[in-house]
């Protein structure tokens, strides 16, 4: 996970195509190492396709530019410099999405929160309750599908009482959701109380002294990618 953070930061620090190419190579290696089918990783790009096109065109298209144009269509021209800039930003988006897609495809929620806890550990020295925060994240993740189900049930139930969620301006629509949000939140608070009882009954007393069922282990490949990432970070920052 730390790699992904560094990866993302690096991407934003990169100035030129050369640096971008290095990161792309790293991404490619990571994808191979993860053994996730390339098709799946690329699927994540579908969601941002529109943004990519928009970015490219926004930079590339000029109205009546003074400089030389690649193509002209009346007042609209495609400017080579703009095209390059657009391509650069688009490439950054592509690599960013690839990286995060890879993360979510290869990591279970437990591993994610585990990694977060590991990263936060140095903060424990400053009395930050890292174990508890990680637990909160795990529990939040666990309840996302359950809460979504409950929300759907409440929406359907209120619809059966004649509620409409598609009428009126933004304010009216927001107000229409009150009969859904209130019970949802009331239930969530009630559930939080019960969960606290259940957790205490199972001897939860905070993050100290807890062992883990599945310890995550860094393999050789993980280390290689980590080192590669750090190297690129350094190269970009210092040399490029």
């Amino acid at each position: 996970m730390g790699i992904v953070f560094a990866y993302a930061i690096t991407l934003f620090m990169v100035d030129g195509f050369a640096g971008m190419a290095l990161v792309a190579v790293l991404a490619g290696l990571a994808i191979r190492a993860s053994r996730v089918p390339v098709r799946l990783v690329l699927r994540g790009l579908r969601a941002v396709l529109f943004i990519l096109m928009f970015t490219l065109l926004a930079h590339a298209i000029r109205i009546n530019p003074a400089t030389v144009a690649l193509v002209r269509l009346g007042p609209i021209a495609i400017d080579p410099d703009g095209l390059r800039t657009g391509a650069f930003f688009a490439a950054r988006i592509v690599l960013l999405v690839l990286g995060t897609s890879l993360l979510t495809l290869t990591t279970t929620p437990v591993q994610l929160t585990d990694a977060l806890e590991r990263i936060m550990r140095p903060l424990a020295r400053f009395r930050v309750p890292t174990g508890e925060i990680a637990m909160m994240l795990t529990v939040a993740l666990r309840f996302i599908p359950t809460t979504a189900e409950e929300a759907e049930k409440i929406v359907v139930a209120q619809t059966a009482r004649g509620a409409r969620f598609d009428r009126g301006g933004p304010v009216a629509r927001a107000r229409a959701y009150v009969p859904v949000l209130v019970p949802l939140f009331v239930n969530l608070f009630r559930r939080a109380d019960e969960l606290a009882i259940a957790m205490e009954s199972r001897c939860y007393r905070g993050g100290l002294g807890r062992t883990r069922l599945n310890q995550s282990v860094m393999t050789g490949v993980d280390w290689a990618i980590l080192v590669g990432g750090v190297t690129i970070f350094v190269i970009n920052g210092v040399l490029l």
Partner: peptide, 22 residues
């Protein structure tokens, strides 16, 4: 649903023993 803490079955079962430092 008020008691299940883990994101997958085995993680939830392990919650108690983990708290006991097993």
């Amino acid at each position: 649903d008020d008691q299940i803490v883990g994101t997958v079955v085995e993680e939830d079962v392990a919650f108690g023993p983990e708290n006991l430092g097993v």
